[in-house]
Write a protein that binds this DNA or RNA. Sequence first.
DNA 1: AATTTTGATATATAAAACTGCATCATATAT
DNA 2: ATATATGATGCAGTTTTATATATCAAAATT
Lengths: 199, 199
Amino acid sequence: MSYDITGIAERLQAARKTKGLSQRELSELAGVPQAQISRIEAGTVDLRLSSLAALAHALDLELALVPRKAVAVVRSLSRDAISYNRKDVVAIQKEMQRISETMRGIQMSMPDLEGLQRLQKSISDLHRFRVSMLDLEEMKKLRHIIEQIGRPGKEMVSLNESLKIMRTIRNKASHDPLPDSGDTLSRPAYSLDEEDDDA
Amino acid sequence: MSYDITGIAERLQAARKTKGLSQRELSELAGVPQAQISRIEAGTVDLRLSSLAALAHALDLELALVPRKAVAVVRSLSRDAISYNRKDVVAIQKEMQRISETMRGIQMSMPDLEGLQRLQKSISDLHRFRVSMLDLEEMKKLRHIIEQIGRPGKEMVSLNESLKIMRTIRNKASHDPLPDSGDTLSRPAYSLDEEDDDA
DNA sequence: AATTTTGATATATAAAACTGCATCATATAT
DNA sequence: ATATATGATGCAGTTTTATATATCAAAATT
């Protein structure tokens, strides 16, 4: 029993720190006094479900009762979110937007550029994948190169380079490990404190 | 908050009934008085973490704090498919959820079933794709067949069939036309902030 | 160096959980 | 019809949480 409670406390503290919140900040978010948060994190109180739920909510967590020893795809999904940097999602989306806009401009100024349709199709195909599967650095590279297409004298070079990067992006989306997927099937993602236990 | 607590109470009761235990039997297992269990299940008390942990343990459940981001990210990403039929997206997500739950059950009841890991990896790999790229009908089929895996005598047949459907799903996700692909580059598919109104 | 922030801890009080015990209404079994 | 099981609910006593408030030592910031 008690290990469950300890784990919960640890999980709460880890989450708070991950979000870069002080106890006082979390206190304001969750409506639980800072002094209580300190005790909770220290494991010196056996807190009530309502308090736990309030803290969890403030930390973008959700309380769940899951079967023990189960390994599930949903956990895989959760793992995605745990390990995934939300900033990257936003950044990738922004890159994609810029790429789209740049492509729009290129199509207007040089609609007959050879290979442009191919590039466009490649970019469109990225929509098949989750944003989280796309590589931010490669997307940045792509955008840079696509921007060069509009520069006189660099059209074909840049376009071909873009196609090359597109291939890289696609390959990574298709074959890169899912975020932490190597661990997904072998350990319980829900209980981060039990990594070395019950695997 | 309160919905979290309600959900927990309901989950506890459902688990107890699933296991065919009376409150008195669970009381003995968990060391929590029957009267209290009744109140807990009725949601009339704001129980302590230790009580919850004891009950969970007796019901072969595990208390976990899982990121709500997982849901939020899924929701966020599915908004990408603005022009896609939202009902389908939701339906696909539900199918995915059911598939996950079913897989969880199967893994608990037959963890050593040959090929199960392969199937699970295939399902995980679906996460590379946008929900909108997944075919609802195929997902339904998949769920149906996966549900058959749990039936005695049908394990291998159903599992192999599942793998086959998985291949179909994957192929369609990779090669089917994009939804409204003609508009892809002209609409702000990646402007999640604009759509991020409810949270 | 001075100031601010952070988490830990103490105090007193109100509220509520928890417990053992008992009992009731209803359902089920004999 | 009687006996048993089940979940709900009441009661009184005990324990503990939660809270507001305050303060401290250490760390971080200015």
